[in-house]
Amino acid sequence: MSQFQLMGIFDDEDGVKSAVRAAKEQGLRIVEVYTPYAIHGLERLLGLKRSRLSIVCLIAGALGAGLKLWFEIWASAIDWPINVGGKPWNSLPAFVPITFEVMVLFAGLFTVLALFMVTRLYPGKQAAIIHPQVTNDRFAVLIEESDASFDVDRVREMLKQHGAVEVTERLTAEVPA
């Protein structure tokens, strides 16, 4: 079944914020907001949870550090111990710098890969541009008809009131996935 949606186009971040706040108060379902830059504080208004990507970062860092430390000890003390200046086989303090570097490398690369995975960003993907200026100077707030009490004219009026320069109707079938 196709869903009916209203899209309010704004030219200012304050308008977006107040429209989102009002929509939330009226219990409307906001599908998504499209913005040319990250508006700070909007995540609280939208009720978005803090992303769990920091856990990925922690695990990847621990994994990198653990693997590298194990490898250094294994290579220098077990697989082929070589006497270098009479240092102990397992020279733990000397293994710290590389362990640190590999930890940072793993944490950084895996976090970014995880970001691309959860946000479905990949080379060759066709961007679903909701409005041609959304990466330039326009903000789009997409509100979906969630139940029978959805009053198109009232929502349209509400968006206009908060400074929408343009309000358009659409069906989800049109929304590129």
């Binding site: 499209y34 990250a38 995540e43 992303s51 990507l53 970062c57 970001l115 960003l121 993907k125 959304v134």
Partner: peptide
């Protein structure tokens, strides 16, 4: 190279966190 970026705020929200982590 823009990986199909569409400006969705959910993406921005995660993106900002990853930027901070980096």
């Amino acid at each position: 190279f823009s990986l199909g970026w569409d400006g969705a705020y959910r993406t921005w929200n995660r993106y900002e966190l990853v930027y901070l982590l980096l």
